[in-house]
Design a protein around this nucleic acid. Structure first.
Lengths: 239, 239
DNA sequence: CAGTGGTCTAGACCACACT
DNA sequence: GTGTGGTCTAGACCACTGT
């Protein structure tokens, strides 16, 4: 076992104390000097841990005043890597997945380039339709790097969601993702599957997802625009 | 005048040295110990400045190896507050604005709530069509807080762009923005103005923009989906 | 092995907020 | 004024990368 840095321990302990309401929302955290005594570490270490929690919007510091515990539900976590079904679930919808198809295919040039593998190497292609209650909402295709997910077939149909499976069974750590979003008109097939009129507007998104070892997923989603929206948070101005 | 913290000075100096190729892209930055001597400050101060540049993707640090200067053009700045015209301009398009209309209107309830003003207080409503070369691409409505922008009329039609005007003339500091993106079908009016077939897919976005003093802009954009896409960057997983 | 960044300390002084 | 967080130092030891 590796030894954990002190600031990590403080960070996790503070986080759980906030979640368990030992430090209730709206109140002030103990002062930095007090926290030094509580955890028996230097102020630098405390400040590093506190800063991490500020970045995650758990805390807000104000010079001369103190450090306030924030309400995490108010500051919804935007710009995090979440699946369509997870996003819908946090909004209170009951999401189900139907028509799951998982196959091994030869990587098209575009996919091969993203995964840094040779053209026509095997990749997984997962195709699904997602439903809210009994109405379809999304058509999703996921390309997954073959070498990272041995025996993926045996886990179909991912009762807890694809991303949950990748995290728990394959121990993938989601690092970052780049997504491009535009809109298209539903063609005949799409209109039939999603049960919308021909040419209805669909949100179209392509996402590349990265772990520490590089890209491992490329996903294409087509969503009924009337039923979905992307929420994003922007910060600062470019130079 | 306020005295600048040492880490700010180091940060700015390092940033300009990178931009002026004194520290060329792809090479290693001097070691932290060397930088301490160069700037005559402690290692903590150097590390704070370096960390800021890492967050802005100017540098990459690797333990046991060194700190590398990155190519900023490779890491496009996503999730920054930019206008449609600015985004298109960085992609090399020539953007023009036509049909500018600026009026004072009584704030609808939705806008009043966002700006924290009374219903029917005056707000500016700016409406425009944006073109690439001679083809229309976007239909934009901006609601602007009346009290923050006195005499806005005199600056029409914003030759350098609305956001540039707000920054330089009104000294607004863009802090953050929240945006919701979905898609709609072009109605008759929209299809005429944008010169697309009826029911063509349009990207629809609503944005609230904040300065240090709270929300000052609410913008609605309708963009021809075939000609535009949103690029976003996601990081980490929610708990 | 030598050299790099990663973590940590104990103590100092400064800038701001509240009363 | 008192107390909070903001900045900064000088020095120590750990952990990783490369040869």
């Amino acid at each position: 076992m590796k030894k954990k840095p002190a600031y990590q321990i403080v960070y996790q302990e503070l986080k759980s104390r906030i979640k368990e309401d030992i430090y209730p929302i709206g109140t002030l955290l103990p002062t930095e000097t007090e926290l030094c005594q509580i955890f028996n570490v230097s102020r630098t270490t405390i400040r590093k841990a506190v800063n991490m929690l500020v970045n995650e919007h758990y805390l807000e510091v104000k010079q001369g005043h103190g450090t306030t515990i924030l309400n995490p539900s108010t500051s919804q976590k935007l710009n995090c890597i979440t699946s369509i079904s997870e996003t819908l679930a946090t909004k209170g919808y009951h999401v189900t997945t139907k028509g799951v198809s998982l196959e091994q295919i030869a990587a098209p040039a575009k996919i091969a380039k993203i995964f840094h593998i040779k053209n026509d190497s095997p990749v997984y292609l997962l195709q699904r339709v997602q439903y809210i209650d009994d109405s379809p909402i999304a058509l999703i295709s996921n390309y997954l790097k073959f070498s990272e997910f041995p025996d993926l077939e045996s886990h179909v149909p991912f009762p807890k969601g694809l991303y949950h499976l990748l995290e728990t069974v394959y121990h993938i750590s989601f690092k970052e993702a780049d997504e491009r979003i535009t809109a298209v008109s539903a063609n005949f097939t799409e209109s039939q599957i999603l049960r919308v009129p021909l040419n209805s507007p669909l949100l179209y998104s392509e996402r590349i997802t990265y772990s520490e070892n590089g890209a491992f997923e490329f996903a294409i989603s087509k969503l009924i625009a009337e039923k979905y929206e992307y929420s994003i948070h922007l910060e600062g101005r470019a130079d």
